[in-house]
């Protein structure tokens, strides 16, 4: 066999998955990518709350209570565009992905 998948003696029993989904990047599903205009962003964090892929990250200040900004984790963002649609100040634009 060409692939190097582990054999039955090497994997945990009971069918327990042994890798985190974080090791599976879904970013290449994307057709449009969200681009955040930090100047327009009011740090309401709704994009973080509504993101189905946990791909909108928040930068916190040292107290951990104040959001300094939000950014997209393009490793996982599937480009659904929900963030752009719900953004109350239209700070997120969906831009055609160029590969």
């Amino acid at each position: 066999m060409s692939d190097k998948k582990p054999g039955w003696k090497e994997i945990p029993i009971a069918g327990v998955p042994f890798l985190s989904s974080l090791e599976y990047k879904t970013g290449d599903w994307r057709v449009f990518k969200p681009v955040i205009d930090d100047n327009k962003c009011i740090r309401c964090l709704l994009c973080n709350i509504y993101c189905p892929d946990m791909a909108i990250k928040v930068g916190w200040d040292e107290t951990g209570n104040k959001a300094l900004g939000v950014f997209v984790d393009y490793d996982y963002c599937k480009g659904c565009g929900i963030c752009a649609d719900i953004c109350p100040v239209k700070a997120i634009e969906m831009v055609k992905e160029e590969r």
């Binding site: 998948k5 582990p6 054999g7 039955w8 994997i11 945990p12 009971a14 069918g15 327990v16 998955p17």
Partner: peptide, 29 residues
């Protein structure tokens, strides 16, 4: 611990989707 113990340092997922690439290995076990 092979259980649903919430104190496990890595939580255990029981009963995933297991396709052609691993199902047979699990059956072999």
């Amino acid at each position: 611990e092979l259980s649903l113990n919430p104190k496990n340092p890595v939580p255990v997922t029981f009963g995933p989707l297991d396709l052609y690439d691993y199902y047979y290995e699990h059956k072999m076990q």
